[in-house]
Nucleic acid binder design. Sequence first.
DNA 1: CTCCACAGGTCAACGGTGTTGTCGTAAGGT
DNA 2: ACCTTACGACAACACCGTTGACCTGTGGAG
Lengths: 243, 243
Amino acid sequence: MSDRVVPPAARRRRRPTKQGVVLSAELIVDTALRLIEEHGADALSVRRLGRALGADPSSLYRYFRDTDDLMLAIADELIGRALRSWRPTGDWTADLRELGLRMHAGALAHPRAAVLSAHRVTGRAHEIQAVESILGVLRGAGFPGPEAVRIYHAFVDQALAFGALDSAGTALPRAAREAEAQVWRTTYGRLPAETHPHIAATAGHLVTTMRASSYPAALELFLTAARTRLERLRAGTGDARPH
Amino acid sequence: MSDRVVPPAARRRRRPTKQGVVLSAELIVDTALRLIEEHGADALSVRRLGRALGADPSSLYRYFRDTDDLMLAIADELIGRALRSWRPTGDWTADLRELGLRMHAGALAHPRAAVLSAHRVTGRAHEIQAVESILGVLRGAGFPGPEAVRIYHAFVDQALAFGALDSAGTALPRAAREAEAQVWRTTYGRLPAETHPHIAATAGHLVTTMRASSYPAALELFLTAARTRLERLRAGTGDARPH
DNA sequence: CTCCACAGGTCAACGGTGTTGTCGTAAGGT
DNA sequence: ACCTTACGACAACACCGTTGACCTGTGGAG
């Protein structure tokens, strides 16, 4: 029943809910984000969102076709917020690092939205702006077109993929998260050296390293590789790929 | 109510269900994987799984504490299948490449399961074996303990993250996938050079490059960076990090 | 200034979900 | 042959997204 949603242009009445709240798409998106932030990803359901807004759950269907539609609106808002104040500095490595960290942080701030929207191409204004910016940094650094596109693709996917991965981790119920830490401490921390020599030899590092996100490390490795590639390109060897 | 689950050692009775099926943890996991493959991740619910097995939904709680417990078992089974026949060759770069591609391929083979389980630490047999193998390759290559762990973490997360990302893409309904391709062709392919010079300059490459997975490229970049790091370590400079 | 179309809020209901307390029964060990 | 108990079945609970029907008061037209 998609005629339930009235296109923004046709909206005119601002009738308040029983509890005196005047709804709008913006208010709903903002409230949803606040709900996720304050009470965790599990707190976002149509019913809870309705309660938080002071409105009947079914009212939301006057503004969004279904929950997926709502999630996309949230994702769009997220992209906007993440890159709102970014400006290139001219140092391509620093610029890429900053962009990557911002995208990752933006995803982590709103786990559920990140998981749902990571694999989507929206073709909307914010996304287009991001593509243009990143390609600009790479081409400005000296990567020729095809190479810039290849690196762009890997870079964006890495940021989105790690964002979604780490988001899924933070979206876990608290009990499950503690269980994971426990697994590293007890299961992996106590394997005998005879059967699992490498795990036993690095157990201490495993326990401490595995609880944080590996994105910063992966990003640094990415930047290292990109710089290596650029150097080989400048050195004139057409083939920068390891065989 | 965790005393509902009987530890494997204490199991003795093989009482069939009303429909004549003899349950077991293995049968449940296999059926869950089949269900996910055939009907999508949304098709996996305790009730549907029970129906597919020919058993009451609540029977599953004799084998798994909750759905999360079941997901971990599924994830571990996937890891096991992916690495079943892998053997190290002694060439650490080639070994890592092979491991990465296998994990990624394994995720793509079970897209819906991969999306659900990519971010979990199972602490079960297959996963432990995988950790030991990868750490073995890295330490064998000459990476000292802490560095090996850091690289291990980034490597595994990258394989899992890209696996989940690409899986999510293939799991989309056909209509949505075609819509995405359309977006690249029309929206991005037709932006004017005045407003979006970098996109316009690389439009052709964008359209062709963006439809394939970027994991192979990202993996090569990763290996390049790892080799660079190792060389710097061997050269004796303690700090292998770009400043 | 009145009128009335209809945007939009509300209500009730449907069919789904994970999970648990309880009970009956048959399989195994003794 | 007996007893214990593993384990399958059932019913119930509280939640979920979604929709059809209803009602109300707002804002533009005359």
